[in-house]
């Protein structure tokens, strides 16, 4: 691990506008610092800030950025009204990690691309301009949507996939005030080599994630992975679907493991709404979702896997 200075923020103001990297749960950042993939020269410990509460906000809820993943998943309000969020969190990591990982930190989780964490290889995300060894390398868990020639890494998290299906917003505090970013616009696509993971600027801190009123219908999180626990998603789907009088009246779908961000395509939802549940409708939704999908050899299987997983989720979501 490279040397760094450490300070503890006693107030939010102290943590804003500094070049020091905020650290909270530490599970991802310390891991990457040990590998020297992350080399901050200063850390500011924000764990003492008052950002650890889950509270009602109108008909919705406000989840403080320091709420541990385990607490969010176990919270009675979240379990009752936004169960897809609990399910997504519980499908990720291990109990030990969920006890430490925070809501805000989890959004900033970095990719698990093996080339990103191997300093002896080329990775545009780690070293801009160096190239991408994943393009022709071991890429079975890489992206099939929204890729670029610079990067085919995936965003690895589960929680954010559920948040994308729940129309969540990210509250971000900076030296000049607070801004709100829809979750679906928080993470970025790789584009050019220098593209950062998300829209968070240096000196800013995530303070909360907000959810609007509980959506109508059934909520499902389905994760397909290479072992039954403690593994990243090959593909995951967060679904919120309501059927009324034999027709799909509400549909929200977000996808993990497919792209550099939780993937959301309004055209997929539009293809479902107003339609009777059935294979023809589900396959058309998959056609739209995967229209521009592109495999890179090792991950070609994700295209049919996504199609089958989507159909399975929609069958479960629309069952009587």
């Amino acid at each position: 691990m490279r040397e760094f200075t450490y300070s503890r923020a006693a107030s939010l103001d102290q943590a804003l506008g500094t070049h020091a990297r905020p650290i909270a749960g530490a599970t991802n950042l310390v891991d990457l610092m040990k590998l020297e993939v992350e080399t901050p020269d200063a850390l500011i410990d924000i764990t003492r800030l008052d950002l650890s509460r889950i509270e009602r906000a109108g008909d919705g809820v406000r989840i403080g950025a320091l709420v541990p993943n385990a607490d969010c998943a176990a919270d009675p309000l979240i379990r009752r009204h936004w169960p897809v969020l609990s399910s997504a969190i519980l499908a990720g990591a291990s109990p030990q990690l969920r006890n430490k990982a925070t809501t805000g930190g989890n959004l900033c989780q970095r990719t698990r691309c093996g080339y990103f964490t191997d300093l002896s290889t080329c990775c545009n995300k780690r070293t801009p301009g160096s190239g991408c060894d994943a393009l022709k390398g071991v890429n079975h868990n890489h992206a099939i949507l929204g890729t670029s020639d610079a990067c085919i890494a995936t965003y690895p998290g589960d929680m954010a996939v559920a948040l994308a299906a729940l129309d969540a917003c990210v509250q971000i505090q900076g030296p000049d005030g607070m801004r709100q970013v829809p979750l679906r616009e928080f993470h970025r696509l790789p584009g050019t080599a220098e593209a950062p993971d998300n829209v968070l600027q240096p000196g800013e801190i995530i303070t909360a994630v907000t959810l609007p009123a509980p959506p109508p219908g059934r909520q499902i999180y389905r994760k397909v992975r290479e072992r039954s626990s403690y593994a990243f998603a090959l593909v995951s789907i967060a679904a919120v679907i309501k059927v009324e009088s034999g027709l799909i009246s509400h549909a929200r779908l977000a996808f993990g493991g497919l792209a550099h961000k939780p993937w959301h395509d309004p055209a997929v939802e539009a293809a479902l709404i107003g339609q009777p549940p059935g294979q023809a409708v589900f396959q058309r939704a998959a056609d739209i979702l995967l229209k521009d999908a592109r495999g890179f050899g090792g991950n070609n299987f994700k295209i049919p896997l996504t199609r089958r997983t989507l159909a399975a989720v929609l069958i479960e979501a629309t069952r009587d």
Binding site: A26, T27, V30, T47, P68, Q96, N99, K100
Partner: peptide, 19 residues
Amino acid sequence: CTVIVNGRRINACLSLVAM
């Protein structure tokens, strides 16, 4: 490396003692 901190199990390897 699992230890119990304030009643919660965590990985001690991913935690800085200063925190």
